[in-house]
Amino acid sequence: MATTDFPTRLKELGATLTSIEKVLDLEKMRTEIADLQEQVGAPDLWDDQANAQRVTGRLSALQAQLERIEGLRQRLDDVEVLVELAQEEADADSIAEAEAELGRLSASIESLEVRTLLSGEYDERDAIVTIRSGAGGDDATDFAEMLQRMYTRWAERHDYAVEVYDTSWAEGAGIKSATFAVKAPYAYGTLSVESGTHRLVRISPFDNQGRRQTSFAAVEVVPVLEQTDEIDIPEDEVRVDVYRSSGPGGQSVNTTDSAVRLTHIPTGTVVSCQNEKSQLQNKASAMVILKAKLLALKKAEERAHLDELRGDANASWGDQMRNYVLNPYQLVKDLRTEHETGNTQSVLDGEIDDFIEAGIRWRRNTEDAPA
């Protein structure tokens, strides 16, 4: 970057950040923080644990978001001062430092700008992600586990908490399915663009002739509900089955009938949970998942297209939204946004922010396009 670009770049980034501040309404955010802080200070806050967790979680998320925005504004002001001093003194090292900081700021502000596109009714919520293997035998179950690891690693990179509710292990390699929650502000709005069918092409490690194999896995993302959400499930509409947990977990998990499977009879929706030692805890967690899935179903039916919240879950040829090709060349490509990279290992290690951001922009452009 030439030094003559500094004024233009600083002006562009300043304008973008100002636009973000207006969209996110910082004064409203500060007012809500003050109100939540007052609620947190109430002596009876923890009499209602569910509400207390909601209040403290919301407060923490808003404070972090405000600090992030204010931090970016401060960094932008600081780099402007650095540029002025560096140019006055013709300090090449300081100019190089300013250029590097501008690059980092640009990436951070662009990422924050994507957040302003998440304005859906449930975008702020935590996400419940379900991955299911599709066509492809052992390669498909192995691929499903690869995707679970990819999303888990992505969450770890952002310091997001992940809670695994249920894992159904395959007889050979990998998993038949897995359900887990990603607990972070805007986790649902962010990850919802990952819903759909994912396709893997590689030399199969399970084929003794070393042939290339194509396999599929489906990803479904739904928002976690809050107490105020209107989803009432009559007891007689839910069948409860208990069974012994399988897979890793230790003796106390695997030797008792603590796992719970819930079936919503009217819709045929089935969820399960086996991560807790207590049958009661597993039932409560399974009910959280069931309500989230039923909300997704309800909203999708209201809009007359199920894919909007749940994504396409056929997990077969012709339905894929993203290809992961490991042989005969290395390429991960999103078929909706055309975003791609040849660094397949980094993607499978959780570096998927570029794909997610491209997906969010693509969705907004699709929504805004004239009918």
Results as ranks from 00 to 15, higher is better:
T344S: 07
N343E: 13
D354Y: 09
V347R: 00
A358I: 05
E367H: 00
V347F: 06
V347D: 03
V332K: 04
Q345G: 14
V332C: 06
E340D: 15
R364S: 09
R364A: 08
D353F: 04
W362P: 03
S346V: 04
D354K: 09
R363G: 00
E367T: 10
T366S: 13
D354G: 05
L335A: 10
T366Q: 12
G359L: 00
N343P: 09
Q345N: 13
N343C: 13
I360M: 03
S346W: 10
T344V: 14
S346H: 12
E340Y: 09
R363M: 02
F355M: 01
S346P: 07
D353C: 04
T341F: 08
A358C: 01
E367S: 10
R336A: 14
N365P: 12
R363E: 08
R364N: 09
D334G: 07
H339K: 15
G359C: 02
E357A: 05
D349K: 08
N343G: 06
L335M: 11
D368Y: 12
F355S: 01
Q345Y: 11
T344H: 03
E351V: 04
T341S: 01
D368M: 09
G350S: 03
A358L: 05
R336Q: 11
D334A: 07
E340C: 14
S346R: 08
V332S: 06
T366W: 08
G359K: 00
G350C: 06
R336L: 14
E340V: 09
T366L: 09
H339M: 15
I352A: 03
L348C: 12
L348E: 06
D353H: 01
N365H: 10
R361I: 07
G350L: 02
F355L: 03
I356K: 01
K333P: 10
G342K: 15
E338F: 13
L335P: 11
L335D: 10
K333Y: 14
V332N: 06
T337K: 04
T341R: 05
T337R: 10
T366F: 14
D353A: 03
N365C: 11
H339S: 15
R364V: 05
E338H: 14
F355P: 05
E338T: 13
T341W: 08
G359M: 00
Q345P: 11
T344D: 04
S346D: 12
K333L: 14
D354E: 11
R363S: 01
A358M: 04
W362F: 08
L348A: 06
D353V: 07
S346E: 09
I352F: 04
I360R: 00
K333W: 08
D349L: 09
R336G: 12
D354W: 06
E338N: 14
I360N: 00
G350E: 06
G359Y: 03
N343W: 14
R363L: 07
R363N: 07
V347I: 03
S346A: 12
I352H: 02
T366G: 12
G342H: 15
N365I: 08
A358D: 01
R364T: 10
T341P: 05
N343I: 06
D334W: 06
D349E: 10
D368S: 13
R361N: 04
I360E: 01
A358F: 02
W362E: 07
N343L: 12
L348Y: 02
D349I: 03
G359A: 02
D353Q: 04
T337N: 13
N343K: 09
E338K: 15
G342R: 08
